[in-house]
Design a protein around this nucleic acid. Structure first.
Lengths: 223, 223
DNA sequence: GGAACTTCTGACCATCCGGACAAATTCTTC
DNA sequence: GAAGAATTTGTCCGGATGGTCAGAAGTTCC
């Protein structure tokens, strides 16, 4: 599954129709995308400035615009680069596994994502706040279908008596909400706890609580 | 509990030291604040423009700036106006009540907030994404202390054997995450479900699932 | 070591944005 | 209905912002 949008001139190699991308090209584009991720995730599309991204990437604005001709191209490039990786753990949830193990593993992976890639999480919520203008098509097709697919898996587990009867889609939302919360609300969590999810003890407390409450909430009483 | 910041010139009446606010003043300030809430919650502080807010409020930019001299004043005015109301249900959770009823009621109220005041929810997450520059002091004092206070209540319930042994602060985070998710991720939810939390059936499914899973996750097995 | 190509930069431009200001209009009060 | 206060608007300004362009500097490859 690939979410690449077919926008012309998105990056240099594609725009020029050249065969190979140079070493410098690859390096700089990566530096730019990393910088853009940080800035877009904090300020949103409108609030971010090309100058700011260029400075963070360690190059001049015209040079950045040599690689991505428009701010908008850069934004969609960051979004699409991130989306596949972001949804990957969801796809790994297997029907033939043990529901408790599969779901526990998935929740843990999502918490690790929030810890290790908070900018990516915040980039998406910024786009969602805007009404998802750039992701709308992808959400309504690819995301919707993969959610329905996994909801069907959960429904079968419920039918087999392995899970309590809960609405599968809302359960998925609960998992996303509780795990991404640690990335998206980092500043708030840090104010209350004094530390964020990157702190090992905090990560352990968070994952114990989230996994404990959610799993007890959906597993049949044992015994 | 009031979170009013002591910023000079925040609004007209205060800035001029006048005794009463006129009818027109009150009306226009409210219209401006409503419009500002919508725009700031979508685009964030930087991404919002004064022109856009003025247009949505149905007045010219200079006239808006007559009421709020700086964009920044308007932003903090919207934030502070919203914060008290936003945290109100949390304060209502009473220690002497039944834990199950108190927590269920609180979760339901938070879901109603997400349904009825989604802009307010999104305004806050925008501020949090920015690193909470305007709310930092308030979060580290008032929010922190009220969270600690309620965590203590939950801890006592646990001590009395009325709740399972979970980390109270992370439980609070879970409640906030799962309920505000329906406001903050509205666009995503709408893409997947085809409708949002304002739809009665969706609201019912969401609240049944969230309340069901969370309460089963923290209440001692009955029987 | 030089031709051809890629990468980078400084200077520049049009537009947008937050904000100032004086003058015009409307409202309140007597 | 006139004085005085409150409200509204048009116009303007300086700085920021997205983006262009011509040419300089660097790289690759023969």
């Amino acid at each position: 599954m690939s979410y690449e949008t077919a926008i012309e001139g998105q990056d240099l190699a594609r725009a020029r129709g050249s065969k190979k991308r140079t070493r410098i090209q690859a390096e700089n584009e990566e530096r730019i995308l990393d910088a853009a991720l940080e800035v877009f995730s904090r300020y949103g599309f409108r609030g971010a400035t090309v100058d700011q991204i260029a400075e963070k990437a360690g190059m001049s604005k015209p040079n950045l615009l040599y690689y991505f001709r428009r701010k908008h191209d850069l934004y969609t490039a960051v979004l699409t680069r991130t989306l596949d990786m972001w949804l990957a753990p969801f796809g790994e949830m297997a029907e033939d596994g043990d529901p408790e193990a599969e779901l526990t593993g998935y929740i843990r992976q999502k918490l690790e994502q929030s810890r290790d890639f908070p900018h990516e999480s915040r980039l998406f919520i910024g786009e969602i706040l805007l009404g998802a203008p750039h992701l709308d098509a992808v959400l309504k097709t690819d995301l919707k279908s993969i959610v329905e697919e996994k909801a069907e898996v959960i429904r079968r587990w419920i039918g087999d008596g392995k899970l309590l009867d809960v609405d599968p889609v809302h359960l998925i939302f609960m998992i996303w909400a509780t795990t991404q919360h640690y990335a998206d609300f980092d500043a708030q969590i840090r104010s209350v706890l004094g530390r964020g999810i990157e702190d090992p003890a905090t990560f352990r407390a968070a994952s114990d609580t989230v996994i404990g409450v959610l799993m007890r909430g959906i597993l049949p009483a044992h015994g």
